[in-house]
Write a protein that binds this DNA or RNA. Structure first.
Lengths: 235, 235
DNA sequence: CCCGTCCTTCGTCCGGCGGCGAAGTCAGGG
DNA sequence: CCCTGACTTCGCCGCCGGACGAAGGACGGG
């Protein structure tokens, strides 16, 4: 195990309310400017700047300047996974409480770059149930019928294969079941969003980090997914 | 996602150096008394008591009093997994550094209740390579030849099946490859330790949380594992 | 029953960190 | 070229929380 101080430093980095709000906002995969993150965290610009500097220095966040904006995003998929896992702990740990988490978040949301919530879990179950993916070492591989079906849906399989992992499970913190991550999960989400099967992300409200991650199915999107996968994804 | 404050609270709980040292010590799966944890963290008894109260209150640690001792252990496998994942981040994140972590830890150690390090990774690879386990939804299932072989080794398969998950991957932070977790991983470790295939855990030195997790193969243990699995596990 | 041990509670101190305002730096536009 | 807008650096303040000493319960043993 790494030195306790290194471990504690990393955890402490995520342990500040303002930084935690920033990290959760970045979990959608978007790159956000320092000013946006300051408003999301509800703090002033100087304070946000100091926090972001520490997050970058700690390796959790990557920054790439463009003009007079500085865009920030999570440094890696591993960072996103760790944040998701910690978020999952908060619902399983502590005094049992009735779900205080909005119904919208449980229905559909983004986990880094793929679909999560009931929608993501249903997608996972449908892909397995239809035999489109099959268990393989370390995750899932696509079947012949799956490749045909995914192609019909417009999913870019070759792009999915360029990822470090083609398809693997990612524990869903609200449903307590796996949803689909990896290159395939990313491409399916990209394809769905591109084709407007899902409503666009609503604009962020000031101080509301969570609004960014909410998704709603369009009627058209629900219909096409239902037809393609043979399940009722829409609530 | 849970409220940012809940997330931050949990991360902050792990973010204190003293509490981090305690959690890492508990990662071996052992139940430790408040006094032991105080010495491990290098703090006084009153301070340790306050820290442990917060860890229990936060749901990360479970306590069960026995006589005048109060034994503490991690509250669940999920807590252990989250701590491991955060530990993994500390080696992949931040400025690239040459491995400052002891060779002994990378060779063999315990991850909660199963084998990790090069030993754990080699075991995983051997089980797959010999066809003793095969990919299944959410993890691995045992094959017929595997069940025979594991039975010869003295592994209690029925005990392994009582776990929530029979066999699944757990990312190894030092080898960056999967080792075996779940009921099977637990039973193999229990069986190995019971049969003295591995040297006993060395006694804890004061203030040294890491010593608890170091393992060394006995010559007898290495020979039997080599013969059974057909790989050279000993360095 | 009294003592030793383990652990907790209480009271107190103090260092560190998060917060902001003001000033400085840099990029872009009219 | 100056102005605006985005972000950083600097300096300072307030306060939360982690540290300890002393005292106060539990529990077990002689």
């Amino acid at each position: 195990m790494p030195t306790p101080t290194a471990f504690a430093g990393l955890a402490a980095l995520m342990g500040d309310p303002a930084r935690a709000a920033m990290l959760q906002a970045l979990l959608s995969g978007e790159a956000l400017t320092a000013g946006e993150l300051a408003r999301i965290a509800g703090i002033g610009a100087p304070t946000a700047s100091a926090h972001l500097a520490r997050l970058v220095e700690g390796g959790l966040v990557a920054v790439h300047p463009q003009g007079r904006h500085r865009y920030h995003r999570l440094a890696s998929e591993e960072v996103a996974a760790a944040i998701e896992m910690l978020g999952g702990l908060t619902v399983s740990v502590g005094p049992p409480r009735r779900w205080p988490h909005g119904e919208e978040f449980r229905a559909a949301r983004l986990c880094y770059d793929h679909l999560a919530g009931r929608l993501g879990v249903a997608l996972h179950a449908a892909l397995v149930g239809q035999g489109w993916i099959a268990p393989a070492a370390g995750g899932w591989s696509s079947t012949a019928v799956g490749e045909a079906g995914l192609g019909r849906l417009g999913v870019d399989l070759s792009a999915a294969r360029t990822a470090r992992r083609f398809a693997c499970d990612c524990m869903d913190w609200s449903e307590r079941r796996a949803h689909l991550a990896g290159g395939l999960g990313r491409e399916i989400a990209a394809c769905c969003l591109r084709q407007h099967w899902l409503a666009r992300l609503p604009p962020a409200r000031e101080g509301d980090a969570l609004a960014r991650r909410r998704l709603r199915l369009t009627p058209e999107g629900a219909r096409r997914l239902d037809a393609a996968l043979g399940v009722r994804l829409a609530a």
